[in-house]
Write a protein that binds this DNA or RNA. Structure first.
Lengths: 203, 203
DNA sequence: CAATCGCCATACTGTGTCGTATGGAAGATG
DNA sequence: CATCTTCCATACGACACAGTATGGCGATTG
């Protein structure tokens, strides 16, 4: 029997797929919370509901967390770290392929792909509309992302101002599309999206 | 119970500004609800809270509405009608000034202007993520808007496919920007926004 | 003037949720 | 083996909210 974490002895930790862990740690709660957040938003993220999805009662929850806000803060921090790491990985590219990579960034954020990720994204952004802490996290993530793609546009040969403009346009478009319901607007949506991507990336 | 039409006498209706009406009708409740919706989202739209903002108790509410869902449906319908009328008015323009009007559309939806309208917009769109009726309303509004600006792009000389692409890009960008926190991304945000608008509208 | 009606207040039930307090089971430790 | 620690269940109190029932007040009407 192997221990996933290194800290506590903690015997029965079956991280094997399918076998539900005998014990829950803080990390398990956070991951489950992000799942619930994606489906129901912050409003649907309640202690007893979350406990039910974990197969335990809230007695467990209040052992790992001080209160509900403690979980929410942890969720926010987890999301921030994940997004920073993700954008760093996504915008790392060898010289000469910056425009290809920018197209890739647009594609990865497509609503069709990465469905769950976009649900979390929208849930957090709606959360940020009523919570200052969430707003600060969103701002940090936005600025980091904008900066990463800005560099790509610069390395692709654009001026500073134009690069900033394109970077902002890129993310605005990506998030905006995920917010709209336009499935029946056209029969060849992929063509439309391709044109949009070109408009954002091309000189 | 029937829908409040014009038939009832209804004496003391002081729609005069400043003087709070002695009586509330269905319309007053809906307007107050939209205000609360803008600030707190659908989750914050509760009967007793809304009643408090109206200065009455929920006894009044349940006289004008069957239940909470009755109000929510009315709010959705009201929003839909308002958006349709608004976009019709905004995209009506004499030949030759289509591009100017498209710039105007982008500006009107700017987060700085029309702050409350955008709050409602985002609240409804988040609502649509968990409610099928709201999603249908958002889809109808989106398709109508996309169609209106598409015509403008066509009349500005673009091909059908390009016009559709630009129309989608326009709204995606507008809503996406309202979703992001980029205030400290640049010192000359107006310049950036101007470049973006040009990228969307210009040939 | 009496009866009615439109509009609202009050009181009540039921449910969902937060947070706490306490007990209990199972492994770790002496 | 006895005890302690870790993790969770159960029970409880407090509150917010949806919806109902009923009573009351002013205005209208006959």
């Amino acid at each position: 029997m192997e221990t996933a974490a290194v800290k506590t002895p903690n015997t029965a930790k079956r991280t094997a797929r399918g076998a539900p862990k005998a014990q829950l740690d803080r990390n398990d709660w956070i991951e489950a919370a992000i799942d619930v957040l994606a489906k129901g938003g912050v409003g649907g993220l309640r202690v007893e509901v979350l406990a039910k999805t974990c197969g335990v009662t809230k007695g467990s929850f209040y052992w790992h967390f001080k209160d509900r806000q403690d979980l929410l803060s942890a969720v926010l921090e987890r999301w921030r770290e994940g997004r920073i790491r993700d954008i760093e990985k996504t915008t790392a590219v060898e010289p000469g392929k910056e425009r290809d990579q920018l197209h890739y960034v647009i594609e990865v954020y497509g609503a069709s792909r990465n469905r769950k990720g976009m649900s979390i994204e929208l849930a957090v952004r709606d959360w940020a509309r009523h919570d200052a802490v969430a707003a600060a996290v969103v701002e940090a993530v936005d600025l980091y992302r904008l900066e990463c793609t800005r560099k790509l546009f610069v390395r692709a040969g654009m001026t500073e101002a134009e690069a900033k403009s394109r970077s902002l346009l890129l993310y605005a478009c990506v998030f905006g599309l995920s917010l709209m319901h336009y499935d029946s607007f056209d029969q060849q949506l992929p063509d439309l999206k391709q044109r949009i991507a070109e408009r954002i990336v091309s000189a």
